[in-house]
Amino acid sequence: MLIALGAVFAAPFYWLVTTSFKTNANISRWPPQIIPDPWTAQHYIEGVTALPFGLYLVNTLVICVFATLGTVLSCSLCAYGFSKLRWKGRTLLFWIMLSTMMLPYQVVMVPLFHVFSKLGWVDTYLPLIVPAFFGNAFFIFLLRQFFMTIPLSLNEAAKIDGCGEFQIYSQIMLPLAKPAIATVGIFTFMGAWNDFLGPLIYLFDESKYTLALGLQMFLGQYGNYFGRLMAVSTLLILPIIMLFFATQKSFVEGITMTGVKG
């Protein structure tokens, strides 16, 4: 059952990888070749040398690491505030935050650009990094849902033991919500890794571009480098796969709640 389903889910990746090894003439064959014949590494060599691959990799990683760090920190704090603390206006602010997601990005793009332009941040990584430190509605909501499942009695107990709110947050909540935090981490990292629109709009210098944007360089007005697109796409998602594979345990190994009665 798992294997059959797995084949269905792995198909696109298989197709992506095999296409990247096909010759140009065979890429357009129909029906598609299941196994490339002949195999060629040409697209990888050309793809990696056509881009400043190392530089774009570094650029991408810098943005990803900062964005992930910022999101995890700010969102877990906010979610804690939204789930475990009582204060006036909590529900209202939660709804306002939630509703900000309901407006399509396309219409806030232009005024948002104005803000960054006024701040003098255009053509830097700041528009791509700094907002992460100010929370993200999606992840706050996600973490809030997780924190809500953690018994409040834990908080009470900690308070009696003399813990401050920040200590409760960092010593109790974060470790307990580790699967959720890991989820937020990988999602943010991936989001920043694949983001194409943000770098496209805010960066005015090709040497600052990211890999996802560099990938677009293989798509033209008149014709595409389809093989290179596939080859660099494969290179682009391999690290994500490895990262996911290495961290997938943390999604499921959070402190199990045995012994803690709700």
């Binding site: 700010s74 505030g81 602010l93 306002i96 806030v108 948002l112």
Partner: peptide
């Protein structure tokens, strides 16, 4: 309140103005 301050500042600066601007537009 303090814990949610990032989202409040973020809302004002990076979300509030663009959203209100789009409403005006």
């Amino acid at each position: 309140m303090l814990f949610t301050s990032p989202v409040i500042v973020g809302l004002l600066l990076f979300t509030g103005y663009p959203i209100l601007a789009s409403l005006y537009y």
